[in-house]
Structure formats: C-alpha cells, structure tokens
Amino acid sequence: MNEVIRLVIYLVAIIAFAALNAAYLVWVERKGAGHIQRRIGPKEVGPYGLLQPLADGAKLMSKQILIPRGVDVPLFMIAPVLAMVPAIMSFVTIPFSETLVARDINIGLLMIFAFASVNIMALLLGGWASRNKYAVISATRAVSQNVSYEIPMLITVITIVMISGSMNLNEIVMQQTNILKWYIWPWTGNFLGPISFLLFFTCSLAETNRAPFDLGEAESELIAGFHTEYAGMGFGMFFMGEYANIVIGCSLITILFLGGWQCPFGLFPGIHWFLIKLYALCWTFVWIRWTYPRTTLWGLLNLSWKYLIPISLVNLILTAGLLKVM
C-alpha cells in the first residue's frame, strides 16, 4: 500500500512539476525576451506578471478544440498526448537529489532517449494528421533534424557512459563529487572536455526544437509548424511537452556534465544545486533563442554531419584511448 501511495505522490508531483515548469519557463522566456529587447515583458497579471502563466493556462483550457475538416481525427487527438506523456515519463528517472528520484532505474539514461524517440513520432503524427501542408513540411523537418542530431548526442552520451561505467543517472552524479570531478573536464577522461559539453548542448537545442534550430515551427516560413491546426489544449499539450523536453534536456546536461545535485565545492549537496544548474541552463536556452537568427535545414544538417558527428566520434575514440591509458 505504501508503495502505491508513493507512486501516486510521485506521479502527481512529476506532472505538477512538468506543468509548472512549462508555465514558468514561458514566463521566464517572455520576461527574458522582454529585457533582452529592452522591454519589460509580462507585467499586468500579478506582481512582475507572475500570474501570467496561470492566465494563459486558463485561456488555453477554456478554448474550444477545433477539428478542421479533412483531419484524421483519432491521430489528431492522439498526437498531443503522445507528445506530452513520454516527456513526463522521462522525469521518472531523473535524480533531483540523492533520494528524490521516482524510480532509480539502472538504465535511466537509455530510458530518457527511448522516450524522446516517441516524442518524434508525436510530431510526425500531429503534422501528418493535421492535413496541412505547412504542418507536414514542418513535421518532416523536425523529424529529420531530430534523427540527425540524435547520432552525435548518443555518441557523446556513450563517451560519458564509458567514463562513468554506468547508465544509472544517480550513479553518474555520485561520481562527480566536486567541480573538479565534473565530466566537463578533460582530466576526468572526457578527452575533449568542454567541447563535448558544447556539442551536447547544441544537440539538445536541436533535439528540443529550440532556436536557432526551431525549423519545425519557423514562423516566418511555416506559420506555426506542426501545431498550426491545433487550438486550445491540443496546442497546450504540445507546448507543455516541448517545455518539459527542455527541462529534461537541461537536466540531462546537468547530470552528465555538471554534477547534477552535487555542490561544486562538495558542501551541502541537494536539490537546490540541481535546480540552480537546471535553470541556469534553461536561461541559456532562452538567451540563445533571443539572440540568433534561425538556421536552415541544410545548414543544420551540415552542422550535424560535417562538425558534430566527426567531433563526437573523435571524442569517443580519444576517450576510449585515454581510459585505456588511465
């Protein structure tokens, strides 16, 4: 019985965390965009516009779900759910602190990537079911982008797994007890060190369809991309899934390279360190989005195949060599 209660609590907490993050990352995004552009951003609803996300959420929920004519209705309805659920499932294995983890699976890393691949399917189905040419183009773009960036990302992950000898996220964190032992540094065995970190960061930008790689929803080309036809909560689910994915991507970077919930100086490890690192990374995502123009699909694939994949492969080989020597 205890087990069941624990499960329910974790499930509710994770969904709440994901939803809250989605809501408040939007606030951070708008506020950040505002200040970067010398504006204020949301300010009317609540102090500093802090209640704005709630107002937005209420608006989305109260909207009618429109189903355009010619749409493949079951798929059209399934796709947002398929985008949202795996993202939330991925939270299950993320260690927010040493004990605060819903399910400490020893292949947690693999699990996150497995669920991420389901997310791609959701984009594809959503785009295809919308029966909108812009949505289809966008879905194919998003998928080819995701597939091509998964390769360097996974290779980098393999490098880290080689160093740490584990696919359990908590174990990976445990090994990085202080700032000098973070896997971002070459002396831990990760041969290219910070470069591989940048590489992984770029890949997660691309994997989460964030600017400058937001080709899927390039508004000046494809209106709103694969969710052009979605209204109300259909759009809201996609939106939440997207922001949940950003949180997961940032958590993963934190865990793999920045020591997760460990303190940089070895003092008071805990969830606060994890959140600080996580939100710093999320802020960087926002910061980047409001700085750069968008790449094209060709530029994106070029970057992946010409730069990221060779570099990650070189890193893999060199790291293997280094580990053998060490």
């Binding site: 552009q37 010398r38 409001w290 968008r294």
Partner: peptide, 10 residues
C-alpha cells in the same frame, strides 16, 4: 524573417 527577433526591437 530569418528568425531573429531581438534585432527588430533594437
């Protein structure tokens, strides 16, 4: 048009 928003406001 190329996807960068901030320059517009600058």
């Amino acid at each position: 048009d190329l996807g960068g928003f901030s320059p517009l406001l600058y």
